[in-house]
């Protein structure tokens, strides 16, 4: 009898022994670059009146910083009730952003290469680590180059772009061009109050070719196939051209709009 209990308790002790105490001076993992040249787009659905959004954005940027700023792009899409412009809060709403957001009911929310967004789900920021790492490890299928010509006086921007297949690929292929403005200062709710000089990063200002982009001429492409696109637009007078970018991505609608490759190019 006694033996049974002692054995049982000893077994419990062994089973539960060995708890891990992490050295507090060494909690951060070292950065280990992954190979490959696939780029990844994180869409951060955020809002100026969303108290948890700045922290989530920091997390996404920390991830970008650790895994490679040339490999990971962040697009801050202001959408949803907490992004609805009121009072002194900045207006970063866009029709396309609202369409992408697709009636989700909270911020912050994330998608990684559109995965988990178009099938109705979204990610919390803590959940993006793995999808980002997975997406980085995927093979590259396309290469995108963007060339911007900007005329200071007329504020006219011409975007010339080439999408080149790096492998053979079959799907329902689309390409999208987005205007992004970085480092805008404005009101943002933060935990415990209001930051009147918050710096909004990578703010999505709209697309040049619709919410879903435009189709590639062919859905079955072969390596070295190249497609050219041109677009023009006039920058809004309130935008700071020095901080504007064109962000472009190729997506596959046969895979719920999964993004295959992303590229970014400064306007100036």
């Amino acid at each position: 009898m006694k033996k049974t209990i002692i054995t049982l308790m000893a077994a419990m002790a062994i089973a539960t022994a060995g708890c891990d105490k992490i050295d507090i001076n060494n909690t951060h993992k070292p950065y280990t670059p992954t190979g490959g040249s696939k780029t990844v787009l994180i869409k951060d659905f955020t809002g100026a009146r969303c108290v948890n959004c700045p922290e989530a954005a920091d997390y996404a940027h920390e991830l970008q910083h650790r895994l490679g700023e040339d490999r990971i792009f962040i697009l801050s899409v202001h959408a949803g009730y907490l992004a609805t412009p009121t009072g002194q809060f900045p207006d970063f709403l866009t029709d396309e952003g609202t369409a992408w957001y697709n009636n989700h009911d909270s911020n912050p929310l994330f998608s990684v290469d559109h995965v988990a967004l178009t099938d109705g789900n979204t990610l919390n920021v803590e959940q993006i680590d793995t999808p980002v790492a997975d997406a980085l490890a995927e093979p590259q299928s396309f290469d995108i180059t963007v060339e911007n010509t900007y005329d200071e006086s007329s504020r006219k921007l011409d975007v010339k772009s080439e999408v080149k297949a790096v492998t053979d690929y079959e799907g329902q292929l689309y390409v999208s061009y987005c205007l992004v403005e970085d480092s805008i200062v404005g009101w943002q709710i933060i935990p415990g109050g209001m930051d009147r000089e918050y710096v909004f990063r990578n703010v999505f200002r709209g697309t040049l070719n619709g919410a879903d982009g435009e189709p590639l001429p062919s859905n079955h492409v072969f390596v070295e196939d190249t497609f050219a696109f041109t677009h023009s637009m006039t920058l809004d007078s309130t935008y700071n051209a020095d901080q504007c970018y064109i962000l472009s991505y190729v997506s596959d609608n046969s895979k719920n709009g999964k993004i295959l490759q992303t590229a970014m190019q400064k306007v100036k």
């Binding site: 539960t16 708890c19 891990d20 951060h28 993992k29 895994l67």
Partner: peptide
């Protein structure tokens, strides 16, 4: 009582303790 969880460390940033008691 004593309770512990055994979880896998999946974090890219931090060392997550795999046995927490």
């Amino acid at each position: 009582s004593f309770v512990s969880k055994k979880q896998a460390d999946q974090s890219l940033f931090y060392y997550i303790p795999e046995n927490v008691g």
